[in-house]
Design a protein around this nucleic acid. Structure first.
Length: 293
DNA sequence: GACTCGTGGGA
DNA sequence: TTCCCAAGAGT
């Protein structure tokens, strides 16, 4: 199958998207490539509803990559708030710096240039090229993978990692016309986010339920290897979050005892602080106090 | 490939 | 309450 091959999936999903797409700031015609890039960083592993207010605040405060690059990286971490995975804030600041210094302040439009930016992997590079610049790119995120796993492969969930067959399939389905390909990509993602969800999919409202291999097979339950449960309470990640929250919520530097008060387990606290310092999310001043970079 | 890295909302 | 997880990237 090639890009000229018609699929029973494409047209219904494009039509569904036309009627059901959410009005998100980074999807509007006037949205800048920078707005799209910021949204993609924030949306990595984070729900849309939580990204919306932070994204708006960022674009107001830093309307261009150069504006963000001119600030201390710690301001990016502080403005990241409680979105989670704060290293993304640091990487987005680094990406803004690279864009300013190496791309004349303009977000690159080429996949390879995007991929070279800090914090930008295959998904984000493809998404920005497609959604900000209308390029024809295979955009393979968790939503797309789940939709294709069900509709085409007839299984409830995709494999743990992306397979060659999966990428080939996505490439085959991609419409030949670049703008249509970009719309198709965002449409499949939206279908996965709103209808073909991980749990309790709303198959009654699905535009391709009649063509879905998983439905045709009787919606068999997932029988692959068990997915690792994501623990959090008591982990280093939670400890790091607590320590960083102290710094985020305090202007300037804090004394060591402020951090010590945030977590009881001493070895774990030491380990977490060391990792935050190693990540560059926290700096230690000459006077022994700690602060955002 | 397997791990690590935050957070909070919904069922 | 407990569990699952939400537009990934880097090591």
């Amino acid at each position: 199958m090639g890009p000229t091959m018609t699929s029973p999936l494409v047209d219904p999903i494009l039509h569904w998207y036309d009627e059901h797409a959410r009005d998100l700031p980074w999807r509007r015609p006037e949205a800048s490539p920078w707005s799209v890039l910021v949204s993609e960083f924030m949306l990595q592993q984070t729900p849309v509803v939580r990204v919306l207010p932070i994204h708006e605040a960022w674009l107001t405060r830093w309307p261009t990559p150069a504006a963000l690059a001119a600030e201390a990286s710690g301001e990016a971490v502080r403005a990241w708030g409680r979105l989670g995975y704060p290293r993304r804030a640091l990487r987005l600041h680094a990406a803004a710096t690279a864009i300013t210094e190496e791309h004349g302040g303009e977000v690159p439009s080429e996949y390879d240039d995007l991929l070279a930016l800090p914090g930008v992997g295959d998904y984000t590079a493809a998404a920005v090229a497609a959604f900000a610049y209308g390029r024809r790119q295979v955009v393979l995120d968790t939503n797309v993978r789940r939709v294709l796993a069900r509709t085409v492969s007839g299984v409830e969930f995709p494999s743990r990692s992306v397979t060659r067959a999966e990428r080939d399939l996505a490439a085959d389905l991609l419409p030949a016309d670049p703008p249509t390909a970009a719309t198709w990509s965002v449409a499949v993602m939206e279908l996965g986010a709103l209808v073909c969800t991980a749990d309790r999919p709303r198959c009654g409202g699905c535009p391709v339920a009649a063509a879905c291999a998983w439905q045709a097979a009787g919606a068999p339950a997932y029988d692959g290897p068990p997915r690792p449960v994501q623990t959090y309470a008591g982990t280093d990640r939670q400890c790091r979050g607590r320590l960083l929250a102290v710094l985020r919520d305090t202007p300037g530097a804090v004394t060591r005892d402020r951090l010590d008060a945030a977590w009881d387990d001493v070895p774990q606290r030491e380990r977490a602080l060391a990792s935050l310092l190693a990540d560059g999310l926290v700096v230690r001043h000459d006077d022994g106090r700690y602060a955002l970079p």
